[in-house]
Write a protein that binds this DNA or RNA. Structure first.
Lengths: 227, 227
DNA sequence: GCGGACAAAATCGTATACAATAATGGCGAC
DNA sequence: GTCGCCATTATTGTATACGATTTTGTCCGC
């Protein structure tokens, strides 16, 4: 429904769709028809399929044979696994980042936080959440570990889906505080503190989710009959 | 040149190609023509493209626009990053695995090691290397962390390419020893020891590579002119 | 004999057409 | 009236055709 973009590559379409998912403009379970997406972006189904396959590999969409592509609906187990993986990767990556942070990095991070605040006060929580995730990927970039960064990008994106499904309270303020504290640790090249802060930040994030007793019951009873 | 497989899915083709790369039957830099691959597997270029895109996402092949698909040639920096990521993920995953290892898991692991030995003595070092990698992914599977497991699968596959490029000495015996020690730690549910063993095993693996002074000079001088 | 430019060939990028499969609606039987 | 079966429809899976870009081989000029 937005402006019809003139960009045509599969990469850009995948990025646009990922952004829409990240900002919760596309909800978990939403169907992504090849014809529809292709018409929106003004391209053939061929390139749309490439984009969808890419997103499927990132676990942002689920491809069901002869059924189509749907925005993924992570289970509770997957949610725990994603945060387990983040707990393995991000704290020590934050430590590495702290040891390498430059003034240019600080400026970039501060601008991200400022944007996040602005989006939040402008009543755009989706964009604020996206920028909040970007903060994490930026830290991975500063650590100069492209391989780990790619993993974290993927995990942050999936976290966005998880938050869309299992978010329970709106303590975004707490998050901002954690990011500010991390920023300070990076500024002083305090690797120990950065690692510890990131570790607890992820635990806080996890504890803000409602991951109880959904293991047996599907989220929507429609899902139970469809299988 | 092998038997023409009747399987037709993009998934199976990607798996076959990944196995060939893993076993060093396809060398880094080898070109994967869409027409050629399609003819070998008896499918159209469409499905071959899907398979290649999947492998490209795993960084096993590199897609160059209007040039084609080539088996990836990880740089020294990428090699270090891959082992850095493995160092973050695998030791603690081995710890988790040790706490959950069942008798069935032990049987499976022992059979993998036996196969590895058999392949090595049968003069098939490529397959032995593949099975050696499978040992690591099996541990991730035992830890019951599908998300982390997917990352490790990817890292192990890329490690195979790295070994193909930077291997310097044939100390496969040492590896087998490390795997046996890990097996023992898992058997006794000794998480501390499993974590420590995995950590040092990865360091040994890394130190067995020749990652010196290739940062400025490309591996083949052809590569320098092609860019 | 060597270098550069042009032409021919090959390969990839995209769109479209057809086939296969699953969802939907209607019809008939009980 | 309700349940089950079958035809219709819609959507995806695959193949093929055409256009764009790159590569390579050849020819001419120097």
């Amino acid at each position: 429904m937005d402006a019809i973009a003139q960009e045509k590559t599969a990469e850009s379409i995948a990025t646009d769709l990922a952004l829409a998912i990240h900002e919760h403009r596309l909800s978990p379970g939403a169907k992504l028809s090849e014809d529809e997406v292709g018409e929106i972006f003004g391209v053939s189904r061929t390139v749309v399929r490439a984009a969808l396959q890419r997103l499927a590999h990132d676990r942002l969409v689920e491809l069901k044979r002869n059924r189509g592509a749907f925005v993924a609906k992570p289970t509770v187990k997957e949610a725990r696994e994603v945060f387990e993986a983040r707990a393995l990767l991000e704290p020590r990556t934050a430590r590495s980042a702290a040891e390498r942070t430059t003034e240019a990095d600080m400026i970039r991070l501060r601008s991200h936080i400022a944007e996040e605040h602005a989006a939040l006060h402008a009543g755009n929580p989706g964009r604020a959440l996206f920028l909040s995730g970007l903060f994490h990927t930026e830290i991975a970039r500063i650590a100069n570990q492209a391989t780990v960064e790619a993993f974290i990008v993927q995990l942050v994106a999936r976290s966005s889906l998880i938050i869309a499904l299992y978010w329970q309270r709106r303590n975004a303020l707490c998050e901002s505080h954690a990011h500010h504290a991390l920023l300070d640790a990076l500024k002083h090249h305090d690797g120990d503190r950065a690692e510890e802060l990131m570790k607890h930040h992820l635990l806080d994030l996890l504890s803000s989710l409602d991951l109880r007793n959904s293991e047996s019951a599907p989220r929507s009873l429609r899902e139970a009959l469809r299988h």
